[in-house]
Design a protein around this nucleic acid. Sequence first.
DNA 1: CCTTAGACCTGGAGGC
DNA 2: TGCCTCCAGGTCTAAG
Length: 295
Amino acid sequence: MPEAPEVHHVVQYLQRHLANQKIVQAIVTYPPLIDNMPAQNFCQQIQGQHFRQFKRLGKYIILELDDYTFVSHLRMEGKFLIVSSREEFEQLDQIRDRKHIHAQFVLEDGRIVCYKDTRKFGRMSLWPQQDDLHHLKPLSKVGKDVLDPTLCAQDLLKKASQRTIPLKTFLLDQSVIAGIGNIYADEILFATRLSPYCMPCDLSKKDMQNIIEATRSILMRAIEAGGTTILSFSYGSNHTGSFQNQLQVHGQKGNCPICGHEIEHQKINGRTTYFCPHCQKLKKKRSRKNNPIKE
DNA sequence: CCTTAGACCTGGAGGC
DNA sequence: TGCCTCCAGGTCTAAG
């Protein structure tokens, strides 16, 4: 579900409510949730730790504890909610909520941080602390974050060389840029007027610069709007975003806001992709074999 | 090395 | 109402 703007708000929310709180007990009721060790060990190790620092890299949530780094990925539907007491937990709806809560972190003050994940796709792991986040195993292949100011056209050009996958798929590759998901990928492509079927290796440095600028602009606006809520994104008890009202193509059934042509949607590597076939152009570089570049 | 299909899960929506 | 199929914002892996 969540892409970088949504994860950004989840991290802020956790920070506001959990900074310096002590975890007195951890309960995991769906053991596969814990990626890198038996759930029992995870619970033992995390017990007694305090939440210290809260960070995000791409779609990953990074919680620095006293002695460990706690990494969480929400995948499609993971959410954190905080209840004030065991009584409040028991009052949650069994079918809608409690059934899907797979981990609980009981705080010293009696509150319980609940991890809810209907589809059970999300994962958590606990690691010895590392100064460089990229040294943590789950983050070792993650590229620069979408909002990393050092991200530049040259980075993308390098990663795009020889790549013949659709540009849409390239933007979703977290080792290229971390934090873009299916919704924002469509919006970025529309903003740059590039077809999702462009081949990354055919793009120029200028195209890459345009992609970076569109990405920053769209993601910043999405963060300001509180993220995008289409299916189920929320955090805390009921916080949702409103960027879905500003989407230009993703999920749209009508006409292109620029040219009026009907918005199309097709599956590209398994992901539904919305685009305007009239505005969004295929680019081809044909200079490899002595053929001079046209246009 | 690169690329793609399938797997992982559940619940909601729409067709009959 | 029930049953069936398809769909969903993500990522890992196995196989070509």
